[in-house]
């Protein structure tokens, strides 16, 4: 499954945000979505990716794809849970 084939409802960029703001922004962005819709999050490696992936899972959403970019940032696609 490639990013282009998934219907992205909303996209946010959290690069440059300090933890836990990337997590908070992701959380709020997911709030606006309906179950099954996909959020695209741009984030940095290391702590941000650790924290965001953990909290997304804890709250019942699902990461469907992770793409590493050439500049060592990541594009994460999250499907909103129930």
């Amino acid at each position: 499954m490639s990013a282009s084939k998934l219907d992205i409802t909303k996209s946010i960029d959290t690069c440059g945000d300090v933890c836990p703001m990337n997590m908070v922004k992701t959380k709020f962005a997911l709030k606006d979505l309906s179950t099954g819709e996909v959020l695209q999050v741009m984030l940095c490696g290391g702590e941000p990716i650790r924290n965001v992936s953990r909290s997304v899972k804890d709250e019942g959403h699902r990461i469907v794809k992770l793409d590493k970019q050439d500049d060592d940032t990541f594009i994460m696609l999250i499907e909103k849970g129930e």
Binding site: G45, R50, K65
Partner: peptide
């Protein structure tokens, strides 16, 4: 094979 575990 999303690669997330490698990153975290």
């Amino acid at each position: 094979i999303c690669g997330l575990c490698q990153e975290v």
